[in-house]
Amino acid sequence: MGLLSYVAKRAAFAVVTILIIMTMNFVIFRMMPGNPVAMIADMVRLRPEQVARLYELFGLDKPLWDQYVQYMVQSLRGFYGYSYYSQRPIAEDIMVRLPNTLLLVGTATVLSIVIGMVIGILAAARRGSLVDVTAISFGFLGNSVPVFWLGLILLLVFGVDLKWFPIRGTTSVPAPTDPLALVLDIMWHMTLPTFALVIILFGGYALIMRAAMIDVLTEDYIQLARAKGLDERTVLYKHALRNAMLPMVTVIALAFGFLLSGALLTETVFSWYGLGRYIWDAILKQDYPALQGIFFIISVMVVAANLIADLVYGFLDPRIRQE
């Protein structure tokens, strides 16, 4: 089977997966209790004609089948309908928040993967040592701390008491105009949320990395690499890591797949203007179209991340490349 047909098959599978997810996405949200117009009506006590207009706006006046077809067609065109809450197109809502999320969660994910991997490798190399035990306990601790609580503690200590970092937002109020100052301002605002995310995330990567490394380090080719007189660094980072990366690739790919939703609570605690906060708001306000839209995008990203993981796998492992 050629590489091309392999990729094509995988891609076709991915497309089918996405279509199924979309359908489920539609069905689940239609099955949810309640109805958005009523909620708005409650909030502001609308008159019947206004209620009718809202039904029309959200397409809720049509039969279910029409709604389904419309939903599928529009989703594929990149239109996810209007947010019940902001009443703006969801795609727009998502696009304005996307860069912030990519910046924060991307940075934090990369940092925690790098930190987690280094710690995992060191812990595996010195298995049972103080380094190992400390790193792994901290990893576990970070992994199990509730992020909202951690975020608030960070806010209270570094924001309220020490005043080293800001309490909210992506930029200062008002945002600086000088581009360099703006970049530094954003970095300053990013610090605490990134820190919180890294604390939460690195442990998982460290544990997986450590387990994979310990596995690989017992392999015969590692002993041979040592016998060859390679220094320990080369043994670890070249011979062992490359092999131990194989299980990590899937984990990393999934991390990027869930990038958009990865920082729900962190973004909320730190008032970061990103998609995580958008999802959180949408959940609280039961903004179904918004949730639908974002779930759709996340599914696509996860499926895509899986595809990419497969390709990277092939790059890392010649045995797979061959097939």
Binding site: L152, L155, V160, I167, R168, T268, S271
Partner: peptide, 16 residues
């Protein structure tokens, strides 16, 4: 008018 995503953070803002 500063927008906070959680009332907890808003209270922290009041404190700070």
């Amino acid at each position: 008018f500063k927008i906070y995503a959680s009332s907890e953070a808003e209270v922290a803002g009041l404190l700070s």
